[in-house]
């Protein structure tokens, strides 16, 4: 009877840990799961295994995970690659937003750590606190409750048509909001551009920065009718990070006032 309870607890902890979204809870869940498992070994007449499992599974494994995933002194940025704005060059990350973020990190005395993730996952990562800032994409999509910084670079949402066929967009991107019914979703802009070149889709909804980079000879029409200040690349933050948002906005304001932002935009975007 006790065994069945312990077994149910072990399994429940494992399922809780592995189906969760937050990494820290996953690590702790797996650690406690190992401790409950040691209890099950006691009932299986295996005290040696129980002792080893408790010492290794609960002690060493949990500690090594905690040491590996700790983020003390770091500013974690969940980002998608965008030309001119934030992209990888060899082993380095560079671009306009990178310049801003690294300067901001210097001001906060924190190392900036950019992690490339799928666009659709950024809101969840920000919400559970596995990342502090979202960057490189047009925030927010309809229905996303995120804190936003002041605009970094204004842009437009456009549709570019190169031939007959359905319309494609990037999943989670603002372009998805303008996708007509029957449109196809892709994971990122690279996949969308490939599909466009292969003729899988005849048209694509994206921001002007990406469309300009693709260098396609197609007819471009502006989709959004909002004023230019509305549609812009911004940084996104978790709703719980109001303090960080204030600091970032103040930093961006200072950058804009001193003319440094214009200089950076001219250098990176032209």
């Amino acid at each position: 009877m006790v065994v069945a309870l312990l077994a149910a607890l072990t399994l429940a902890l494992a399922v809780f840990a592995l189906t969760g979204r937050r990494l820290l809870w996953g690590v702790i869940g797996v650690g406690v799961h190992a401790l409950a498992l040691a209890g099950v070994y006691l009932f299986l007449a295996a005290p040696d295994v129980a002792l080893t499992q408790a010492a290794v599974g609960f002690g060493l494994v949990t500690f090594i995970y905690l040491l590996a995933v700790r983020r003390t002194g770091k500013l974690t940025v969940a980002a998608v690659e965008t030309p001119h704005l934030l992209y990888q060059e060899n082993e380095r990350v560079t671009g306009l937003e990178w310049e801003i973020l690294s300067r901001f990190g210097e001001q906060l005395h924190r190392d900036v750590e950019v992690m490339w993730v799928p666009r659709a996952e950024i809101p969840a990562l920000l919400r559970v606190g596995d990342a502090e800032i979202g960057a490189g994409a047009l925030f927010p999509r309809e229905g996303e409750t995120l804190l936003l910084s002041r605009p970094v670079l204004p842009t437009r949402i456009v549709t570019v048509r190169c031939g007959p066929g359905p319309v494609g967009a990037v999943a989670g991107d603002q372009g998805q909001d303008f996708l007509p019914p029957g449109g196809i979703l892709y994971e990122d802009h690279t996949a969308l551009a490939h599909a466009l070149r292969r003729g899988e889709v005849g048209a694509a909804v994206a921001d002007l920065l990406h469309v300009r980079e693709w260098g396609l000879s197609g007819e471009v029409s502006v989709l959004d009718t909002k004023d230019e200040e509305e549609t812009a690349f911004r940084f996104a933050l978790s709703p719980a990070e109001a303090g960080l948002q204030g600091a970032l906005d103040a930093f961006l304001d200072e950058l804009a006032r001193s003319g440094e932002l214009d200089k950076l935009v001219r250098r990176h975007v032209g």
Partner: peptide, 25 residues
Amino acid sequence: YVATSGHLGPGGGFPAGALLGTGLL
């Protein structure tokens, strides 16, 4: 204790080493 009594009761080198490693943490 776990190491030296390992041949008589539950214990032995592996759990003792893991305990010592965690303790050193």
